[in-house]
């Protein structure tokens, strides 16, 4: 079977989990959040995953390019990057629906 690799698997895989989507929601609030802050925000929205589980979800989001991890001084901070979502938005639009170009 011939499957064309469109390079989007990681993004779709990253989005195919409610906890990871909730993490993206939490990152909309502000960039530069620590794991601890994200875990606190998760708990506040009713997600009861362990800190270790949240950390692994963040790894998946980072592999898909949706989250960037940066070191600032002694802290590891997480930023949201929605760039990988833009191709998904345009992909199935018909030419006359593409208002963004």
């Amino acid at each position: 079977m011939l499957v064309v690799d469109d390079g989007q698997d990681e993004v779709f895989r990253a989005l195919a989990d409610p906890t990871r989507r909730a993490l993206l929601d939490a990152l909309v609030a502000r960039d530069g959040q620590t794991l601890f802050e994200l875990c606190t925000r998760m708990a506040d929205t009713g997600v009861t995953s362990s800190r270790q589980a949240i950390s692994q979800h963040l790894d998946v989001l980072a592999a898909a390019g949706l989250v960037h991890v940066r070191r600032q001084g002694r802290y590891r901070l997480h930023d949201l990057d929605t760039t990988p979502l833009l191709p998904l938005r345009r992909r199935w639009l018909r030419p006359d629906e593409r208002t963004d170009r």
Binding site: T34, F36, T40
Partner: peptide, 19 residues
Amino acid sequence: LTFTQPPTPMGPVVTAVFD
């Protein structure tokens, strides 16, 4: 002092974290 987390409402409390 540097805050790693600004004051953030968390249910019944507001929390912040500093170094």
